[in-house]
Design a protein around this nucleic acid. Structure first.
Lengths: 222, 222
DNA sequence: ACACAACCAGGTATTTTTACCTAGTTGCTG
DNA sequence: CAGCAACTAGGTAAAAATACCTGGTTGTGT
């Protein structure tokens, strides 16, 4: 049985080249080409011949690759997507993985690697080169280490207490009631919090609290 | 030049077996063995002959592998660590990667794979098998998918735009400037956001945005 | 053509937050 | 004991957010 492939790239010549290349591989066929994200989605919608794997360029007009990827994965979770990359930044690459990309292929890769990538993704849902894996690993590690650096958070217990109540969407009066304080006192704490955390307002305080893991998103009902 | 290796495992026989195995590989030597995490750290401390790579069992008495790994990476960030795993759960595996593990090796792996893993880690800082990579990928993706369930968030694009700026600690006037709107309009959006998200104030909006992954903590500077 | 949702923008009034002050009490430490 | 940090609490004023209104425009779908 053939592996059905679709290609989305804004450069016609590139599309045609890849198509020709894929034709030279055994048991593969290109079912359609798209020149931007919108067209890709439309073709996936209309085509009776759904692709198994899509080769997706990230930088396209109309709708870029990342947005297209997200929508694709939402509507057709079974379709595997291999990202065609020129020279993207790490955060963008991570975003595509988080959006569900199944593989990554540099645009200057060898033809053999294209074939290998497609077959691996078809078999294992998965193909990444070593540098990519290194980036992924960094991405995994990063989250745990965002803070840790400036961690001496200086906040006193009372301040942390007030901050936690702020994060529960209480205003100063309510907090004062709860802690048996004057609202002026609470305002004082609040002010110190703004200074110490270098925040501009309540939004900043909430972000600070979450970033520094003073407590967890899940514990705050909404 | 030889690759210097240390082994930490609580089973003596296993240690000796691996040591023997490694002796059979070219340009490798075992510099010491430890039977638990504490001993491993002590030996790293005292030994003049620091290992390049440590083969580390996760389940050990006294101090388990994960804790040992964390301390190791803190003190000796240059030492690479390959985890020896029997049958750990995913979350534990991810924890080791976040703690800086450079590779993962199943205890029932083929001898050739041990050699390959060591050489790859020595060369690339990095060796993971396909199933491991799959787990890593899931780990990366998971975070992005916590919500999604109740996702019909009703928020219009404009509202999301305003919300994102609120989360960047902007006030209504600043948002109005940025979006070329009247501040009254922004206030209108803001009000709708409060209603739709059932929030009481800015803190609630930020929490909502984060909970529903409208964007990521990391992307919001603080 | 009509309904409807999204978007925009104004008014008025109240509440809350922010900014910038002062100052007393408590408890710990050199 | 002196010094300091944490906690408390007050005043005044300006800025921002909230509550509750109104009404217009635009685009989409029926």
């Amino acid at each position: 049985m053939n592996i059905k492939i679709a290609i989305a790239d804004d450069q016609k010549l590139f599309r045609k080249g890849i198509t020709a290349l894929i034709k030279s591989f055994e048991h593969m066929q290109v079912v359609f080409e798209a020149e931007n994200g919108l067209e890709l989605l439309a073709l996936c919608e209309s085509s009776a011949n759904k692709p198994d794997i899509i080769l997706l360029d990230l930088s396209m007009p109309e709708m870029n690759g990342l947005d297209a990827l997200k929508l694709l994965k939402e509507k057709y979770p079974l379709i595997r997507v291999i990202i065609l990359s020129s020279h993207e930044v790490e955060s963008f690459i991570l975003a595509t993985i988080q959006a569900g990309a199944n593989g990554y292929l540099a645009k200057n890769a060898e033809p053999e690697e294209v074939e290998q990538a497609i077959r691996e993704v078809y078999k294992n849902d998965f193909y990444f080169t070593l540098p990519m894996l290194e980036i992924m690993r960094k991405g995994l590690v990063k989250k745990a280490n965002i803070i840790k650096l400036d961690d001496q958070d200086n906040l006193t217990n009372r301040e942390k207490e007030v901050l936690s109540l702020i994060c529960k969407q209480m205003n100063s009066n309510e907090i004062a009631d709860k802690l048996f304080l004057s609202n002026r006192t609470v305002e004082g704490h609040r002010n110190n919090l703004l200074l110490k955390t270098k925040s501009r307002n309540t939004a900043g305080l909430v972000l600070y609290a979450l970033k520094h893991k003073l407590f967890d998103l899940d514990t705050l009902s909404n």
